[in-house]
Structures are given as structure tokens and as C-alpha cells.
Design a protein around this nucleic acid. Structure first.
Lengths: 159, 159
DNA sequence: TTCGGTATTGATATATTATAACAGGGGTGT
DNA sequence: ACACCCCTGTTATAATATATCAATACCGAA
């Protein structure tokens, strides 16, 4: 993994292929990527940034796709459950998943400067925590791994 | 680490020694453990559970220590900044720290059954994430590592 | 095709979590 | 006494999230 999110890349192609993968996922699993959901995913993927539910709602609302909070939350819930987006707990915000489908336990690098988010992979029983859990007889169902800091670009403008 | 939080232990002694450590910390660092702050810490430590700010406020309020949200949030901010308590991002709730003073990057095991929280230790550049960060030139300032699941006791009552 | 069930959307209201802003009090050092 | 800083009290409001119910759209079975 190379944190493509912080690098220059052909973002148009990046979005296209991610959307295709998302559609393939939905088709394969009998999930319905309705207009609001699809547009929500596009908005999240448009930048590799975390977006609050109300920011998202504002965008949807501009496009006539709904004006009330449940619209945004329902779309986000769907995407998160489908593994097409992730919630960043440290920000109460949401980000599109760049590798949908892979059944993964993601970890995030979150820039406090520009709110960019890069997605990395955790190993199932990562580091000490897996050990500790096993030792304690704790059964892990979901894990949240998030690191906040500064991305390369923001380190420069900050320093 | 053995997740004492999920085990039977002499909790009265546990609280006493933790409070003492907290006081020592404050004394050493010139921080003021005022009545509200002290009581807040005691309430958090009374059980190894995550408590919402408003639950805490209700407790404080019963004891005549303040009735408005800022009372609770200010006390929590102080404790979190001082390293005497932690915020559980996945729950938007707070838990007392059982090893105050050690400058640590804690990881948590959170039971969704009883909301108990056990604190483990992460290694600074934990798992893949440290690697990924280094590779990407990302500077980590703070990390959130939380695992949700079922503690031993709740696995039994659940199954 | 029609029927019946399920998933989705629309809309209203409200719950939960958190912060801004400003006034007053109380100690400390000069 | 005074200036300063930290802490507290209070009011108001912001930001995040969910409950509920009615209406509609889709989908498979008969």
C-alpha cells in the first residue's frame, strides 16, 4: 500500500474504476445502488476526504436529491454496511472506500490539515491488541484503527 | 497486560491506587484536581465502563456539582488532556485511565454488551499502520485503536 | 397480470453530543 | 491594592444522529 490518497494520481480514472467495482459488488450481492446512494458514493469519492453527514446533505440538497437528515444518514448507512464507505470515528465523518469488496479491516491515516484520508490494511489480529484480546477471552467483532497527523503536503505548509 | 477490567479484582483498592496516582500526577505537573474534576474522575473510575458526557452530568448534578453541559465537558477535557481519562471515539463516551501518568498510546477493548472497556498498550508504530505512514511520509500525532466485541461474561449471556 | 411482501423514500419531530460566549469569583505574585 | 490567570456559572446554540409513520417503488410468485 502506498497511500495513493496523498499522491498525485489520475483521479478521474481512480473514481471510475472504484465506481465500477462498487457497481459490480452491488450486482453480485443483490444490493440496490439507487440514485441517492450512487450520488452519495460519487460525492464521497470525489476527493479522498472525510465529509460530514450534513456537508453531504448540503451537496445532495443542491442537486435535488433530498433535504432532510435521514436522506444522508440512510445513504451513508447503506454504503457503510455494504463496505463501500467507511465512518471515521475520530471525526464523525465519512469517506468513500477505494477498494470496495475486499472484505477488509481498514486502518486510516487522517490529515488534520486538509482532512484527507488514506486507507491502509490492518492484519486481522493486529499488534498487541489481538494478543490482549485473546489473553482476556475477548471476542473482537469490529475494529477501529485511525491515526491523525499531517500528510506530506500539509507538513510543508504547516512548518 | 491481562485486561484486569474484565476480571474480578479488588476494585476498591484499584480505585484508591488509581486516584492516588492521579493526584501525584497533578501535583507533579502543577495541575489542579478541583472538586468537580476529582469527582468526575471518581465517577469514571467507579466502573470500568464508558460513560457519556450527559450520563456523567446527571451524576454530577445529583451531587450538586453543576447542572449544565459545559461543567461535564470541561472536566472531561481536563482529564483527557491530563491523560487521566480517555475518550472512546466509537461510542462518544469517556472512561477513566487505569494507568495515569505513563505517557501511552492506549488501545481499547470495548464490550458492546456491558460497555466495559479494557485498556491495552499499543506499540508506537503499531502494526502495518506505522509502516504505511512512514512509506507515505505521513506524520502521526495521535492514534485511535479500538476493538468492539464481547467480553467473556457477555459471550455467555449472549450465546 | 395482479397480488402481496419488502425495500426505499419523504417528511416531521426529536434525541444526543458538543461548543461559543461572557460574566463572576478566587487565588497568587507584585 | 492591583493585575493576572484559571476556574466556575449560566445562557444559548451548534453539530451529529435517530425514531416514527405514511407513501411509493420494486420484485417475485401465483
Amino acid at each position: 500500500m502506498s497511500a495513493i490518497e496523498f499522491s498525485d494520481h489520475d483521479h478521474a480514472a481512480c473514481m471510475r474504476s472504484t465506481m465500477q467495482a462498487a457497481e459490480a459488488q452491488c450486482a453480485a450481492r443483490g444490493l440496490r445502488l439507487t440514485p441517492v446512494r450512487r450520488r452519495t458514493l460519487e460525492i464521497l469519492l470525489a476527493e479522498h476526504r472525510a465529509l460530514g453527514a450534513y456537508d453531504l446533505l448540503a451537496r445532495l440538497s443542491e442537486e435535488g436529491l433530498g433535504t432532510q437528515p435521514p436522506v444522508a444518514y440512510r445513504a451513508l448507512d447503506f454504503l457503510v454496511k455494504a463496505g463501500l464507505a467507511h465512518k471515521i470515528e475520530a471525526l464523525n465523518a465519512y469517506v468513500g472506500c477505494v477498494q470496495p469488496g475486499e472484505d477488509h479491516a481498514p486502518a486510516f491515516l487522517i490529515c488534520r490539515g486538509c482532512r484527507s484520508v488514506a486507507e491502509a490494511e490492518t492484519k486481522p489480529a493486529q499488534s498487541r491488541l489481538g494478543e490482549a484480546a485473546r489473553a482476556a477471552g475477548f471476542r473482537i467483532e469490529r475494529s477501529v484503527v485511525e491515526a491523525e497527523g499531517l500528510c506530506p503536503a500539509c507538513q510543508e505548509s504547516d512548518a
